[in-house]
Nucleic acid binder design. Structure first.
Length: 413
RNA sequence: GGCCCAUUCGUCUAGUGGCCUAGGACACCGCCCUCUCACGGCGGCGGCACGGGUUCGAAUCCCGUAUGGGCCUCCA
């Protein structure tokens, strides 16, 4: 039997990073198995629906590189069928009316159990389960009913979802059994916590996928990082491309315990992926990011900076501050060693050709003649030219800045 | 409160009874490279929550305790 899974967000807001990770596991599993993956919007509670959410969820998934098969499904579309099934349960005595709503009647003795693909055997005593409302008095089905019903209708073979659904599972299994339906395989993946091991909080942590896009992370890096939150391939492999992840993913290597989101590790990993990009890809990522942040620096000049920043930054958001001196005027700090800067200006003014190699040669010669150490002598020049203590390589920066601007800055300092 | 789940370096994890004097990665610290910052190289610090069992032998199995989390909505 071929595998079919689903991603089932509720359209109540932006996509949460924990939800993204759960969807990623669904996607990796489906693609690994050569199966199908559906996107099903669980919108039976229209009162909580947020207008933009459905669009935004799709955009976020696409950005990450997670796709799905067939058109987007909406839970409301099958509401009628769900209500029919509820009436069948009513007729068979598996449900009863209560104040205009329909409640499912749980078995009163015995246990419900299943073998969770990530957590092993789990069982609940039936007598602790409450009779859930499955159809509201307004005639609309509720999650605990609509969701398993849709899973039947969609032919879902594996339900891969967050661990917060563990305690809904016995109820859903009882419903499925009353409906005489086959049970899917359940896999409950662990939660993701924030910095202090507590729940991710909107206030403290970056939680919306858009926050990560804004910060300048790139899709394969975030995917790699997220995949490693609760899953591993072996004892040493860390960096894996999307296709490697698809090839290697398996549910039995998902761990049952919750993970804490380590932003520093993500930063490092993003740097790894950024450095792996070739110049064109890098320039393209940069241009896209700049455009989305309303920075309209000339693209050919942005391209020219790529070799200077490629190895230096780990997030795209670090780019503007790092190279701002190439696009805007700078204000060098007070106290720059005028002797060295002036001498440098004289030497550079006399240069025949303006390129990094000749600039380096001239400046090193000067430093040598002055009896200075490169370390101490180049810093005032850097300050004068870039206005900052930290910058891309000095000689390359001077070349790109151009002779005229470089000399002006040196003389002004 | 009831039920359920989880617990290996600060963090993500490897580990399924002997290969473990517990391995890798991030972070941190030190050294090297070096025009700053990065990158890269080398080295270091650091952990099986606790208590009982079972066993010749336990991070691994069992029980209890503690801690954290989830659910207990006519939310999903």
């Amino acid at each position: 039997m071929s595998v079919r899974v689903r991603m089932a967000p509720s359209p109540t807001g932006f996509l949460h990073i924990g939800g993204v990770r759960t969807f990623l596991f669904n996607w990796l599993f489906a693609r690994q198995q050569g199966g199908e993956i559906l996107l099903r919007i669980e919108n039976t509670d229209t009162s909580r629906e947020v207008e933009e959410a459905t669009e935004q969820i799709q955009r976020s998934l696409r950005w990450l590189g997670v796709d799905w098969d067939g058109p987007v499904r909406f839970q409301l579309d099958t509401a009628e069928r769900a209500v029919e099934l509820a009436h069948e349960l009513l007729a068979k005595g598996y449900a009863y009316e209560d104040d205009g709503a329909i409640r499912f009647r749980q078995p009163t003795d015995g246990v419900v159990s299943w073998t969770d693909a990530v957590r092993g055997h789990i069982e609940f005593r039936n007598d602790v389960l409450k009779d859930p409302v499955i159809v509201r008095s307004n005639g609309r089905p509720l999650y605990n009913f609509a969701s398993p019903v849709d899973d039947i209708l969609d032919g879902i073979t594996h339900v891969i979802r967050g661990e917060d659904h563990v305690s809904n599972t016995p109820t859903q299994i009882n419903i499925l059994q009353a409906l005489d339906a086959e049970l899917p395989v359940y896999a409950h993946v662990p939660n993701i916590n924030g910095e202090n091991g507590r729940k991710l909080s909107k206030r403290r942590d970056a939680v919306a996928l858009d926050d990560f896009v804004d910060a300048g992370y790139i899709p394969p890096a975030l995917m790699n990082f997220l995949a490693l939150l609760g899953w591993s391939y072996d004892d040493k492999t860390t960096i894996m491309s999307p296709s490697e992840l698809v090839e290697r993913f398996s549910l039995d290597r998902v761990v049952p315990s919750p993970a804490t989101f380590d932003y520093k590790k993500l930063d490092w990993m993003n740097g790894v992926y950024l450095r792996e990009l070739d110049e064109d890809e890098y320039a393209h990522s940069l241009e896209t990011w700049l455009r989305e942040h309303d920075i309209d620096w000339p693209v050919d000049r942005v391209r020219a900076t790529v070799p200077l920043v490629h190895e230096k930054i780990e997030k795209l958001s670090q780019y503007p501050d790092f190279v701002r001196f190439l696009f805007e005027d700078v204000q060098p700090p007070d106290g720059v060693d005028g002797r060295i800067v002036e001498a440098a200006a004289d030497r550079l003014a006399a240069l025949d050709s303006w390129n990094a190699a000749s600039i380096e040669q001239a400046l090193r010669m000067l430093v040598d003649e002055l009896g200075e150490k490169p370390r101490t002598a180049f810093q005032p020049i850097r300050l004068a030219v870039t206005g900052a203590k930290v910058s891309p390589g000095l000689f390359e920066s001077l070349e790109l800045l151009g002779r005229q601007a470089a000399l002006e800055r040196l003389r002004a300092a």
